[in-house]
Structures are given as structure tokens and as C-alpha cells.
Design a binder for these strands. Sequence first.
DNA 1: ATACATTATATGTCTATACATTCAATAGAG
DNA 2: CTCTATTGAATGTATAGACATATAATGTAT
Lengths: 150, 150
Amino acid sequence: MVKIEEAIQQKQFKDPFNKAVVNLLYTNSYLVTSQNALFKPYGISPEQYNVLRILRGQNGVPTTVSSIQDRMLNKMSNASRLVEKLKVKGLVKRSECPNDRRQVDVLITEEGLKVLAELQVKVEQGNRNFVNLTIEEVILLNDLLDKLRG
Amino acid sequence: MVKIEEAIQQKQFKDPFNKAVVNLLYTNSYLVTSQNALFKPYGISPEQYNVLRILRGQNGVPTTVSSIQDRMLNKMSNASRLVEKLKVKGLVKRSECPNDRRQVDVLITEEGLKVLAELQVKVEQGNRNFVNLTIEEVILLNDLLDKLRG
DNA sequence: ATACATTATATGTCTATACATTCAATAGAG
DNA sequence: CTCTATTGAATGTATAGACATATAATGTAT
């Protein structure tokens, strides 16, 4: 086990709270790097994958761009541009919302569902491997993270 | 406490391991967004702050770009360009390394030390506030994260 | 000493985050 | 209905992450 102090060669931290922030940023980087290797062969980024998952969760009901935004892991990201990228790849369809012409209905395509299903198997297996904890530890970790954001 | 399921409106996860990965990515976004608000008034990004901290840790001994890279929170980042940004702001100095002219010695300036000291007070206080855990919980979290990366 | 491999850094390009601004459509007040 | 405010989406711009490639300096084999 490589402690955060060794990993980034920092001898000490102000307090365990500041250490935890650095540890979370560093662990995030570890996870993102690990996940990127999985996504690379598919030409889809983790963020685009996440948008596809959100759309599939709708079970065929179209979703607006702002609704996607609300459900993204990174609220500060840009759903509009991610949807555009996915549209170019033929994985989603975009159409003007009839009730409110400001809004845009986004729907995952058959091709999008196919790509998502294939990717999901790899990602879910990968994620299990990246997290080197017991089931008890990982449940505890989830509780701590939920509380942390308090 | 807002559980991750509510936060991103996802009803369930494949297993606690996959939930933990999503929870970590989401919590990272929460922390980065919180920190950005602190950094904004100083015109320095969290990544640039981190490079300044690494340089100060050298206590006046110059550091090469690759050594900075190794100690960054995000190993895939680009130390060369971050150093260039800091140089433009007058916070670091760059000079050719005499022993090996491929290398570049990087040194934090007086101005860099001053800005860093000022920022650090805010960041350390902020980090304590962002992490809504008891001291026992935060120590446990650090242990879990170190083990997770296994 | 020359040729070739390796190393340190810089640069190019694409994607995404962060955040401000624009623009069209709609809602609401009078 | 008209004027104004608000909303939803798109766009502009800067910074950074991801990764390939370029360039120069150094090391090494012959």
C-alpha cells in the first residue's frame, strides 16, 4: 500500500482534513487514468459515457439538455457540447421540444444503446478491479463520502 | 446528508465498488468546485498552487520539470506548461541546468513565496470546512483511500 | 569519433472544465 | 397586447488533462 505521503513525496499535511482533500484529488486522478485506458479503444470519453447512461435511464423518454446537466457527475461541465459530440457519432438524436421551443429533446439511438451495453461490461468489471477494498470497506467508504459533502 | 443516488438521480449501482467509483468522481467534483472559488480571486489555478507548494518544499534547491511532474497530484498533467504560466506571472524562475543542458532548474521567487503563503491560509481553512467529517472519520477515510489504490 | 538509443523538455491537438456572454423563446406584469 | 424579465441552449475563451510527436542534449556501443 502506497500512502499518499509517499505517492506525492510530501512529508506532512496541515491536518487530516487537508490530507484527505489531497488524497481525494490524487485518488480521483488514479481512477480517471485507470478508466481512460478502458474507454480509449471505443473512442468515447468517460463524460460521454456518463451522458449515454443518463439517457438510457430515461427508457425512451426524451431528456432536455438541462436535465442531463443536473444529473452529470460534474455539474460545471457542458452538456450542450457533449450532446453535440455524441450526435456527430450517431449515438444520440436531438430534436426541438414541441411544448417549449427553447428546449431540446435528447434521445439515445439504437447504436448508442449498443455501444453503451458493450462498454458497460468493461467499465463495471474494470471498476471492481480498480478498487482494492473489501466489500465492508467499500460500503464504509461510500458512507464517508456521502457524509463528507454534508 | 445527500446520498450519491439522490445527488445524481441514479436509482442503483451494479455493486458497491461501482458506486464508490462514481461517488469518488462526484466528490472530487464537489471539492474542485469548492476550491476554485477560493483560488479565483488570486488568478492562480489549483494546479499552479500545487506546483508552487512543491517548489517551496525544496527550500531553495532548484527542481527539474520532471521532478515536479513526478510529485504532481495528476501525473498525466503537463508540468512544462504550468511552469511557463507561473513564470509569466513572475512566481517562478527557470534556468538551464549547468550539469545537464537538457534539464531546466525551476525555483520559486520571493513573490511566489509571498502569494503562496497568503493563499495557503485560505486553502487550508477552506479544506477543513469542505470536509464535513469528524477527525476519526477523516483518518479512516485517508486509510481507505490509501488502500483503495492498492 | 560516429551512429544510435535514451532522456528532458517543449509543442501540437483533442477533449473537457469553468465561467461569461449571447440569443431565441417563453412567462409575467401592466 | 406590449414590454421586460427569465429561462434553455449554444457559443466564446481560458485553463488543464491526455497523449503523440518533435527537438536537443546526453549516454553508449562499436
